[in-house]
Nucleic acid binder design. Structure first.
Lengths: 152, 152
DNA sequence: CGGATCATTCAGTCTTGACTGAACGATCCG
DNA sequence: CGGATCGTTCAGTCAAGACTGAATGATCCG
């Protein structure tokens, strides 16, 4: 019978990151991978992570690549080794903020398109939508500024 | 047989908001409610919305209250009428940003707690976590600043 | 070439949570 | 009081998607 209440602080931290990611709408396993890399601080292979986190290699593969596309992690290789190693990106702030910024910008874009199709009679509704779009656009810009500030 | 490809721009906009919310991890119906209110620009009763959006009253009730807790919508009453009416909050920016800010702050808080439990030998890991926490805290602060800027 | 060791893909399972319908309590009006 | 009309709660259904295991393709080494 396995321990029901884990007191291992490392496991605890990894699990916290899993829940954190899940709360943000990302797969829980992606969070656990990030937490594990944060604890180890060195490149880890897929097989390593799969056994450490007790999940399938397929899941690790998928989620590690997900993290890579989001700019939180990067794929590295070691000479004379066929394994894929992943390691933390030292300064993930830029990626995080730019992802959010891009989301807002695309939302603004789609809303603008839908707003343009509304008939002229709905002038007030169109104005309300444009105000919201404006806020999204400004926020996206503001994040870019913040990126520059934080990376200086 | 119902129309398969809706060209009604209002329905189109409402549906877009539904998808937008869903993409942000919120219930699709919450987005549709917000879209509907954005189109109408006046307080709407639960029954109204339920028939307009063709969903159950229970769902409208739940999601309207969700939007209210997030500060996007507010409950209003009309004299001599027992219905609950909901209307848009004119300037939702503050609520949106403060929600995000609060999320980041609480994430930073939990990470700090978990980090404190790590043994001293893991000095480097602790440092990495603290750097991440610092970023979260700064971002939360930065959003507060942005709130002030946008509401002036 | 043939076996071994990778990562990835895909069909299928299973979990999460959004949504519904029926009941309930509250409030109002006749 | 009794019927009607609210909003909410709750158990149950259903769909989306996270995860798995087996199969596939690629690369390396003997």
């Amino acid at each position: 019978m396995t321990q029901h209440t884990p007191i291992d602080p490392v496991v605890n931290f990894i699990e916290l990151m899993g829940l954190q990611f899940q709360g943000d709408g990302a797969p829980r396993i992606a969070g656990r991978i990030y937490g594990l890399l944060l604890m180890e601080g060195r490149p880890l292979g897929l097989q390593d992570m799969a056994t450490r986190l007790q999940v399938s290699r397929a899941s690790i593969s998928t989620n590690a690549r997900l993290l890579a596309t989001k700019g939180l992690v990067e794929l590295v290789s070691q000479p004379g080794d066929r394994q894929d190693y992943y390691q933390l990106i030292p300064v993930p702030h830029v990626s995080i903020l730019e992802t959010v910024s891009a989301r807002m910008a695309s939302a603004a874009e789609r809303m603008t398109q839908a707003e343009a199709m509304l008939p002229e009679e709905m002038g007030e509704a169109k104005t309300r939508v444009r105000a919201l779009v404006s806020f999204y656009r400004q926020s996206a810009d503001f994040m870019q500024r913040w990126v520059r500030e934080v990376s200086s």
